[in-house]
Simulated scan of single mutants.
Amino acid sequence: MYRQLKQELIDYSKEIGIDKIGFAAADPFLELKQKLVQQQELGYASGFEEKDIEKRVNPALLIDQPRSIIAIALAYPSKLEGAPTGKKGERRGLFCRASWGEDYHAILRKKLALMEEFLQKKLSDVQCKSMVDTGELSDRAVAERAGIGWSAKNCAIITPEFGSYVYLGEMLTNVPFEPDTPMESQCGSCRKCIDACPTSALVQGGQLNSQRCIAYLTQTKDFLPEQFRKHLGNRLYGCDTCQTVCPENKGKHVLIHDEMTPDPEQVKPLLEPLLSISNKEFKERFGSMSGSWRGKKPIQRNAIIALAHFKEESSLPALMHVLFEDPRPVMRGTAAYAIGKIGGMEAEHALKRALIHEKESDVLAEIEKAIQTFHSVL
């Protein structure tokens, strides 16, 4: 009966637009537990994860008598058609591919909810618990066990069909589905992702120091540590470097789901207008994207750093307005950094004026460093 139900569920998953589906046993993830403990001990965790490691590795703590886990994957596009070109005076930032289109959390949750309804119609005593990204279980560990793809050196799941350009989700259930066979890693001796990581966040194949990862750093709300600012480039949210250099991703591009179609002006926006965008405007323009989940503050801070990266002189008035008028110390301090990087007599005068009026110690430190940077450039 369960073998037939499995096939029916596979068929149904295709009907509702799920690109890959796999089944795994609900046994504890013992090997993962060792890795998670090590990550915490080394200080490599991001802090966004479920804090309780036992919940992350033991499905029995999430529902009564779990018997299997259903993993799903939806492919997302890797190319931006009609991308606007940034130029002097009109510099642009970039949201990573995983933030293009509608928030993937909502898309996958809808698919999983339909699957839950399907099982509930078939079985009267079925239990289900679905998760996408923010749940207790590790999406990648489940997907690997379920044969969706292999766990790669860049800490992503790579599928033969779509590369690593897939969103992952899973459903824990008490239905004893027969598990599928995991895939063997096909990374071999390749280490392109490790070598290309801008901040050396990939400590080794399959191990990530999240505290150094640009994808994580773009989501923080405090001052970005100075050692990482030069590596940010024009990234506003996320980082795709370890994906774009992967040979398994070469030529992988699909646009299967209309809701994942990227809006070029949304995912590659002009930088300077972001500095003065209101909360309402931000939600209206970017609220449907997964990259908006932390609010406008990290995006604005990153936009300021991107303007520093471009040394965009035309943005000095806007940056000075932030330096003198923005109520948030992180914005004022980061603006001081950018003004120092851009340089010029006008920038020097602005920084010296700010040094007189500023009260926050962290901002004062940024202003002083910016003035020193300015003089070192001269």
Rank of each mutant, 00 (worst) to 15 (best):
T218Y: 06
A26H: 12
G149Y: 00
F177I: 04
E102M: 06
E161D: 13
R97P: 00
T181H: 04
E170L: 05
K51E: 12
R91Q: 13
I214F: 02
E358L: 10
A215R: 08
G149A: 06
F282V: 10
V203T: 13
V330Y: 01
S151C: 03
A106P: 00
C187M: 03
G22I: 10
G89L: 09
Y76M: 04
L9E: 08
L112E: 00
L217C: 09
V330N: 08
S68H: 06
S13I: 09
D222S: 15
L168C: 08
P59N: 10
R285G: 02
A350F: 05
C239D: 13
K359S: 15
T220A: 10
I339F: 03
S164R: 04
D133H: 08
E41A: 15
P269N: 09
N249Q: 04
C128L: 04
A306I: 04
L80G: 02
I342G: 07
W293C: 12
G238K: 12
A98L: 11
L270V: 05
I18P: 02
C190G: 02
T261P: 08
I158M: 03
S200T: 01
E117P: 00
N209W: 03
N174K: 06
S189T: 09
P160V: 02
E54L: 08
T134R: 14
P327F: 05
A25V: 12
L9M: 15
L255D: 05
D180S: 10
G188A: 09
T220V: 15
K230T: 13
I299R: 09
E144L: 10
E117F: 02
K252C: 07
Q227M: 14
A201L: 00
D195S: 09
L108E: 01
A83E: 10
L112K: 03
I277Y: 03
Q65N: 15
I194Q: 08
E144W: 13
